[in-house]
């Protein structure tokens, strides 16, 4: 099976029903998306497919229609995405396990609503669980990223 992940074509030898998350993590070695629940209830595995946010733990490979973008594809040390920069300025992460998913959801939100209200943030980010409860800082970082890209 052929996928495009972060701009790179990759060949995956797996069944069509294998969830994208596990193909990325265990077969392609792309570890940014995290396994948290397996039932799309925590958001740790969030990636973009054709620019839209998807919980990769429940997306079968056979239903991937479009390029896949993971946290590794939006920015890297030295060339961070504005959302990642904002996350650093606000010092959001604690344990950090959910943050790749949080950031991908925030990127998806800001792509469509460049200047989100609190309610917009709540409607997008309610799907991303954080047991360290970094929520106030996530909210601040999204607003910071919005301000930095909107300028």
């Amino acid at each position: 099976m052929r996928l495009t992940v972060n701009g790179n074509p990759i060949e995956i030898d797996a069944e069509a029903e294998m969830p994208l998350l596990w193909a990325l993590r265990d077969l392609a070695g792309i570890k940014g998306p995290k396994f948290g629940c397996g039932i799309a209830a925590c958001g740790a595995c969030t990636v973009l497919v054709a620019g839209q946010p998807v919980r990769s733990c429940v997306l079968p490979l056979g239903q991937v229609e479009g390029d896949v973008t993971t946290i590794e594809g939006i920015g890297r040390p030295g060339a961070l995405h504005a959302v990642q920069e904002a996350w650093i300025v606000e010092q959001v992460a604690q344990c950090g396990y959910c943050q790749a998913g949080q950031i991908m959801s925030a990127v998806a939100l800001l792509d469509e609503i460049p200047n989100p209200s609190d309610a917009d943030i709540d409607r997008t980010m309610g799907g991303n669980l954080c047991r360290c409860a970094t929520y106030p800082k996530i909210r601040a970082a999204i607003k910071r990223a919005a301000a930095s890209t909107g300028a």
Partner: peptide, 18 residues
């Protein structure tokens, strides 16, 4: 759904077998 969390974010074309 809403930007950043549409129905399709979680609900795919088929039922999750889990």
């Amino acid at each position: 759904g809403n930007p950043g969390m549409t129905c399709r974010t979680c609900h795919q074309e088929t039922n999750s077998p889990v």
